[in-house]
């Protein structure tokens, strides 16, 4: 299982199928919640996750595809676009320090 220390997270990618809808919404929420943390949050289609991503966040239904395109990344999957516990946990770990694992 990939894992990363919260202080080594510089770029989070929110991946979705088209990079058009839900990922855009979640990325904007994350950006707001992580304001002041020196972490870049971007949204991209799941098949073009950039190599310098530290953490990939995607819907559970896309996790298998994300694992193929970014096999060595820490992958957080969620079910709810707004207020998912996995995403809340990621934000809290970044804010409080700790290890984020897939």
């Amino acid at each position: 299982m990939a894992s990363i220390d919260s202080k080594d997270i510089h770029k989070i990618i929110v991946a979705c199928d088209a990079g058009m809808g839900s990922s855009v919404m979640l990325a904007s929420q994350l950006r707001k919640q992580l304001k002041g943390q020196q972490i870049q949050v971007e949204h991209t289609p799941v098949n073009s996750i950039p190599a310098d991503a530290d953490v990939v966040v995607c819907h559970a239904g896309l996790a298998a595809r994300a694992k193929v395109t970014a096999p060595d990344k820490v992958l957080i999957s969620f079910q709810l676009f707004i207020g998912d516990p996995a995403v809340t946990k990621l934000v809290n770990t970044i804010k409080n320090g700790g290890t984020v694992d897939a």
Binding site: D17, A18, M25
Partner: peptide, 19 residues
């Protein structure tokens, strides 16, 4: 492929990447 239901009675349908 995946529902675009986002909660609170709202869905955000959109096309595919290819589209």
């Amino acid at each position: 492929s995946i529902s675009t239901y986002v909660g609170e009675g709202v869905a955000i349908p959109h096309g595919t990447l290819a589209a």
